[in-house]
Design a protein around this nucleic acid. Sequence first.
DNA 1: CAACTAAACTCTAACGTTTGAGTAAAAAAG
DNA 2: CTTTTTTACTCAAACGTTAGAGTTTAGTTG
Lengths: 340, 340
Amino acid sequence: MKSRITLKKIAREFGVSISTVSKALKDSHEISEETRGKIKAFADYYNYKPNNLALQLRNQKTSVIGVIVPEIVHHFFSTVINGIEKYATEKGYNVMVCLSNESYEKEVSNMGVLTNGSVDGLIVSIARETQQNQNYKHFEAIINDDFPLVLFDRINDDIECDKVIIDDVGGAFKATNHLIEIGSKRIALLTTQDFITVGSLRKNGYIKSLNKNKISVDESLIYKIDDKESLYDQIKKAINVSNPPDAILAVNEIYAAIALKIAKESGLKIPEDIAIIGFTSGLISEYTDPPLTCVEQHGFLMGKQVAELLINRIESTAPSEFQKVVISPNLKIRRSTLDN
Amino acid sequence: MKSRITLKKIAREFGVSISTVSKALKDSHEISEETRGKIKAFADYYNYKPNNLALQLRNQKTSVIGVIVPEIVHHFFSTVINGIEKYATEKGYNVMVCLSNESYEKEVSNMGVLTNGSVDGLIVSIARETQQNQNYKHFEAIINDDFPLVLFDRINDDIECDKVIIDDVGGAFKATNHLIEIGSKRIALLTTQDFITVGSLRKNGYIKSLNKNKISVDESLIYKIDDKESLYDQIKKAINVSNPPDAILAVNEIYAAIALKIAKESGLKIPEDIAIIGFTSGLISEYTDPPLTCVEQHGFLMGKQVAELLINRIESTAPSEFQKVVISPNLKIRRSTLDN
DNA sequence: CAACTAAACTCTAACGTTTGAGTAAAAAAG
DNA sequence: CTTTTTTACTCAAACGTTAGAGTTTAGTTG
């Protein structure tokens, strides 16, 4: 790669000092019309652009936001990133995306790299392994430095920073209420293992709705799916039983789509024999047959919120209280719970 | 944000010079055991980490790869990014993702920002608007500087750099051959407008297969879908006709899923009355009923390839010929083309 | 005891930029 | 013709780091 033209090279070309060139390019009145003109023409011709690193170092400001997410091939996360990028660009920031790949170690190393001057602030959704280990030392380190940080979706309440979450309890509550309204009595829950916070929150919403509707919680209807084994086999066990449930609430889209598939294969009619609701993150729910009713998570809005909180934190000088923004999901009713 | 500790501050603390500190932390024999010890302990206590910007400026190397894609909420692109990130991390690089949002202007500005020192190399998939305008000046600029650049998927042959593409012609050829083999005679093509290169390449593959199988090309069976209008209405016009096609090849997953939905609504049996194949990028095809046969694009592999080419280019000193890597897609046969 | 060597530092330049302070020469003012 | 002002510059420091060259002091050698 050819090295780019710098102020120094232009200065040498005209036998002037570097600061003369810098000022000339900034149209400073300190430099004569004539000198300004020739320097600008030359710089233009050689396509001079100030070096970002040098500017960032001098200004102690990168105008870059770091984002660390567990995965990127995931509709919800990529939608959030899209929202972050949109808001960040409007405000003159670039976005640097890193993946933790659900690994504690990668999360730590990514945070280490990004916080050493590369970015002005950080947005993180915590890796599964970190949530499992409950090891948040790497967060404490940057919190102590008052490094701008916003957590979203996969958060931890002990970390003192701005946060944005979906109202998972409310979403599951709404969904369960809807199932009860359409007459379901035995609602199975397909959830994740307990350490996944969103999974357990959604379970709480499910239980809250049952309680409110005076339906006793039947633990045998709650299935904790392990993502490392065959989803298909595990979900089959929830449906192919002697006394199958009359409704299913799945904490994500894939579980719901698989449940739908299995139910159909078992000859069950949807929603007559079994109604199904999932939490959406993608487009699958729209194209299944029947299309799936789902809890919509508003990832784009979430991204904008997250970016807004972070940029405010970066740009404000006065310290202010940390905020926790809760985004209410809404229920998108489709034919998997409603005949038309 | 509290300012981080620097060599200068440590130097001041012990009344030594900055270089003493720098060397002490690097365990240089030039510094006495005693001084080294206390400096290292102090640095450790205050969690000293060298500032990246300063290192990058000094070393003229950022170890960051820039990626510019048209969208991120898109299974194919996010999968490619995943592959890039995987390989880049292995090689000690970070990834900075920017979105062109299909806009020429954003592509130009993103490239401008990233190439001014922020990254060591750039990976781009060209925005729709840029392909439409045929304006590639911004690429020429960085090509002239020998700035490391790799294009993927949405490429332009006039830009001299490394490239990675899917064999779109071959994929569509395979898919069309398969349809003909199962007895389809009137195969409709749901494609994009001509300026989208992948769309027109897939059309070429379709035509190539018809020619090879001695089926005349019926232009009235080729539908150029405009992404800005209602996909549903446009695709309906391809199916709800007096003499409907007996097969559909769609150049992406959404078109295929919508076609499937419309065909079912119209009372057509799949695949008996109408067989359907799409190019996949996501998970939809797996969960439709029947599941869709599709051309699989290997985005992750593509990402690794792209990153490998770029990092080789960055790290090699000797100039070498530009490569064009072609990845062969494969046909995943599901029930939308085959009874079971 | 002069000359040399080793130890343990410091200095300086470099990466590329900005900006306030300093300076020399020319022009204007008194 | 001296003083002041203006013009058009250059200098120096700063951001944080590294690495080779230079310096000081003490100890060793012949």
